[in-house]
């Protein structure tokens, strides 16, 4: 199983490579990718350095161009594809079928992966992208149980990559409009969810309110640690109850099921977090590297070490982790 780590800048990319990532995925500094945050991502110049650093050490670089261009911006997505291809990228991670159509026509030999943002959860869906654009890998959304992932793998015409660790989207990726409903900006159109431009932290008597475009996402009492107002991870009222109606602040962690993922034929494990620090990338990559290596050597004797779990919990949302949809009772 290949380990695919995130990098939002050159120090993170180096951290990923130095700590054992087989591949690192990055994005350019615009809305062509789903982590379009201020101060993040690569210019053409830093991208060139990134490619050289990784490839000199025998590692791969993937570029995520995984948002959905509208007609007036389509040229930016073409430029991103061409820029990545010109510099010898190992694969593009694409979501929009228009961009896939362009990339497969303009760069027929370039390796294309289907982004999680393409929102494909079945072998028939994968076949559409394989037959039309020759994709060579698919990243599955975080909505399938382990047995459902296993079933897709047996039918899929291409190898399958799944998420192994990081912030958890609880909605099927690529078809979640919660953020644009509240702010006008979504992952699909703008490359960001619950964008910082619309976030407000408000000190009140007795605590802190967190708002997204004025909508109250959560209220924290004095002494309670306030989290970032990601829309699906706030506390709301349903009926008589006020609770995390959609999901708690928590991160996905698959260390406990790595042998199972190997057994069902998962080809690559992805770590979420291009927006996180180089320290996060280093820590998570090192743990995942050690875990995957141990799992490959001795899948039957494999057990996640307490020390690994602790290190991952330290960098998790709300310091807690979950198996998410992989584990049926979560659903």
């Amino acid at each position: 199983m290949e380990l695919v780590s995130p990098a939002g800048n050159l120090p993170s990319l180096k951290a990923a490579v130095d700590n054992g990532a087989d591949a690192v995925y990055v994005g350019f500094k615009d809305d062509t990718n789903a982590r379009h945050f201020a101060g993040l991502n690569f210019t053409e110049r830093t991208f060139e350095k990134a490619i050289r650093y990784a490839q000199d050490k025998g590692r791969k670089v993937f570029v995520a161009i995984n948002t959905f261009p509208q007609p007036d911006g389509f040229q930016r997505w073409k430029t991103a594809v061409n820029q990545a291809a010109d510099h010898g990228v190992n694969a593009l991670i694409l979501a929009d079928m228009g961009v896939l159509d362009y990339a497969s026509e303009r760069w027929p030999d370039l390796r294309l992966h289907l982004s999680v943002q393409a929102s494909v959860t079945s072998a028939d869906g994968i076949r559409f992208y394989h037959e039309n654009f020759g994709i060579r890998r698919v990243v599955l959304p975080r909505v399938l149980s382990v047995s459902q992932v296993a079933h897709v793998i047996t039918q899929s015409p291409v190898p399958v990559e799944v998420f192994g660790f990081g912030s958890l989207c609880v909605m099927v990726e690529g078809r979640c409009l919660l953020s644009s409903y509240a702010t006008g900006r979504s992952p699909n159109t703008y490359g960001a969810c619950s964008p910082a431009s619309h976030v407000r932290w408000e000190e009140t008597v007795g605590g802190t309110n967190t708002r997204l475009n004025d909508v109250l996402i959560d209220h924290y009492g004095d002494g309670e640690k306030a989290g970032y107002p990601t829309l699906c991870k706030g506390r709301f009222q349903v009926g008589e109850n006020t609770f995390y109606a959609l999901e708690e602040p928590t991160s996905l962690n698959t260390l406990s099921i790595l042998p199972k993922l190997k057994q069902i034929g998962v080809s690559a494990i992805k770590v979420e977090g291009r927006q996180r620090s180089p320290a996060y990338v280093a820590q998570v990559t090192a743990v995942m590297r050690a875990a995957i290596d141990q799992c490959m050597q001795d899948p039957d004797g494999y057990l996640p070490k307490d020390q690994w779990m602790q290190k991952l919990a330290e960098v998790s949302e709300g310091s807690q982790t979950t198996l998410g949809a992989y584990h049926r009772p979560w659903q």
């Binding site: 909605m171 099927v172 979640c176 409009l177 919660l178 959609l246 949809a325 659903q331």
Partner: peptide, 8 residues
């Protein structure tokens, strides 16, 4: 607006 594995 959104679809999930989870039933809300």
């Amino acid at each position: 607006l959104a679809y999930s594995a989870r039933c809300y």
